[in-house]
Amino acid sequence: MKIIKINDKKDAEKILLDVDCTKEGTAMMAEKAVFRVVRIYKVKTKAANILKQTMLSKGGDAAVSRYCADLSKDYTDVVLMATLKQYRAAIPVLLAQPWGLKQIANELKTLLAL
């Protein structure tokens, strides 16, 4: 038994094929095997709340300031934690949201090469 470090989708595909997964299974699972943590700076707290809800609804998570709950500060940094598959599911939702979330979605798409 050992921990495997998977840096990208190619690494995931190699590992999955190495255990004799089918090509179809590998295509479905590769993005589930790549986990990314992304820090976003100075997000409007209203947007951060929507971002957190969206990530949770897709199986990921987002760490936000405690001041998001009561909107007592205007901005927060956000730490996103998700697989590539979860980001891919969240991005279309974020594209339809206000307060700068469309730009964040587009930047995530570029950053994660989705």
Score class of each variant (00 low, 15 high):
Asp20Lys: 13
Tyr41Gln: 13
Leu16Tyr: 09
Gln103Cys: 00
Ile50Asn: 06
Ala48Met: 05
Lys23Val: 10
Glu107Phe: 00
Asp20Val: 06
Asp8Ile: 11
Leu84Tyr: 09
Gln103Asn: 02
Gly25Leu: 07
Ala90Ile: 09
Pro92Glu: 09
Gly100Ala: 07
Lys23Glu: 14
Lys46Pro: 03
Asp74Gln: 11
Arg36Trp: 09
Met29Lys: 01
Asp11Met: 06
Val19Gln: 15
Asp18Tyr: 10
Thr76Asn: 04
Thr83Trp: 05
Gln97Asp: 00
Asp70Thr: 13
Ile6Cys: 08
Gln53Lys: 07
Ala89Phe: 10
Trp99Glu: 09
Val79Ala: 12
Ala82Lys: 04
Ala96Asp: 08
Ala12Gln: 10
Glu24Met: 02
Val79Tyr: 08
Asp70Phe: 09
Lys85His: 04
Leu101Tyr: 03
Leu101Ser: 03
Val79Pro: 05
Asp8Arg: 11
Ala105Glu: 02
Ile50Met: 08
Leu17Cys: 13
Val64Glu: 14
Leu17Gly: 15
Asn49Glu: 10
Leu101Cys: 01
Ile4Phe: 02
Pro98Met: 02
Val93Leu: 10
Ala113Asn: 15
Trp99Asn: 12
Lys52Phe: 02
Cys21Lys: 08
Thr54Tyr: 08
Ala48Tyr: 04
Thr26Trp: 02
Ile3Pro: 00
Ser65Thr: 12
Cys21Ala: 08
Gln53Phe: 00
Tyr41Trp: 12
Ala105Cys: 06
Met81Glu: 07
Val64His: 13
Asn7Gly: 13
Ile15Trp: 12
Thr54Pro: 08
Leu111Trp: 05
Ser57Val: 00
Ala47Ile: 06
Asp61Asn: 14
Tyr67Gln: 15
Asp77Ser: 12
Ala63Thr: 11
Val79Phe: 10
Gly59Gln: 01
Ile3Ala: 03
Thr110Asp: 13
Asn49Pro: 00
Lys52Tyr: 04
Ile6Phe: 06
Ala33Asp: 04
Pro98Trp: 00
Ala12Gly: 07
Ala62His: 15
Asp18Pro: 02
Lys46Gly: 01
Gly59Pro: 04
Glu107Trp: 00
Asp20Phe: 10
Leu101Glu: 01
Ser72Thr: 14
Ala82Pro: 06
Ala69Met: 12
Ala105Asp: 07
Ile50Leu: 08
Thr110Ile: 04
Ser72Gln: 15
Val37His: 01
Cys68Trp: 06
Ala62Asn: 15
Ala69Lys: 15
Lys52Cys: 02
Trp99His: 14
Ala63Arg: 05
Asp18Met: 12
Ala82Gly: 11
Leu56Met: 11
Tyr67Thr: 15
Asn106Leu: 15
Ser65Phe: 09
Tyr67Ile: 09
Lys23Leu: 11
Lys58Val: 15
Val19Cys: 15
Ile15Asp: 02
Ala27Gln: 13
Leu108Val: 12
Ala96Glu: 11
Arg88Ala: 14
Cys21Ile: 01
